[in-house]
Simulated scan of single mutants.
Amino acid sequence: MHIHNISNQNSILNTFLSEIRHVNIQKDSMRFRRNIERIGEILSYEMSKTLNFCAQTIETPLANSNINLYDDNIVLCSILRAGVPLHNGLLNYFDTAENAFISAYRHHKHDPESFEIIVEYLACPNLEGKTLILADPMLATGQSMLATFEALKPFGTPKEVHLISVIGAQEGVDFIDNHFDKNTHLWIAAIDETLNDKGYIIPGLGDAGDLAFGEKLQK
């Protein structure tokens, strides 16, 4: 797998990362959502450099102009609910893309420190020969990302697969590195050291879905 850790280079991205992590700033849910969205825009820009481009001629009011434009058929797929602000950031840049949405959540049977990934809802266009961008803001264990990708397989085989995350744990990055095709690209804003006993990223930022949309009722 091709792993692109964007925080390895200093940029304005660090400002948005610091604010979604900061225990006081992250309490502003509107600012939290907007920062996730802005991180999605930065990751989209970096990812766009690897797309396929072709020369096109456009007509301006004064003369023709030649420019290279990407010609990939893109499908954006986000994991609900935490993935919505990240999806918006991607869609701001790939505004002609098709869209897919899937629900995937942790189900704790008996032990609060063990869980399985449950997929309940899926809406997806045909993926055959297209460029799939699979987005999940928090890459903890990597199991949600893999379960989502497996659920998408009946919709066709993408030409290329790009995974987009805001923050990941090294364990999760290693997991998807071992389970996805070697030509898959991971675009991530930061990779943290470890997971705690409950599978949350440390230092991470907490629960991205709760911070964006409020605490959820537990089943």
Score class of each variant (00 low, 15 high):
H4V: 12
H4S: 05
S7T: 01
T15V: 12
E19W: 03
N24W: 01
R38D: 07
I42W: 05
L43E: 02
L43F: 02
L43K: 05
S44Y: 06
E46K: 06
E46G: 06
M47N: 00
M47W: 03
S48V: 07
T50I: 14
L51Q: 08
F53N: 09
Q56Y: 08
T57C: 13
I58K: 09
I58Q: 12
N66E: 15
D72T: 07
D72H: 03
S78R: 04
S78H: 10
R81S: 06
A82S: 05
G89R: 00
L90S: 07
N92Q: 08
Y93I: 11
A97R: 00
I102C: 04
Y105V: 10
P112R: 08
E113M: 12
I118K: 09
K130P: 10
I133N: 02
M138A: 05
G142V: 08
L146D: 05
A147Y: 11
P154V: 00
P158I: 07
E160G: 14
V161M: 07
H162S: 11
I164A: 04
A169E: 06
F175S: 12
H179V: 11
H179S: 10
F180N: 02
H185K: 09
H185P: 14
A189I: 09
T194N: 11
G199W: 01
P203T: 04
D210Y: 02
Q218W: 15
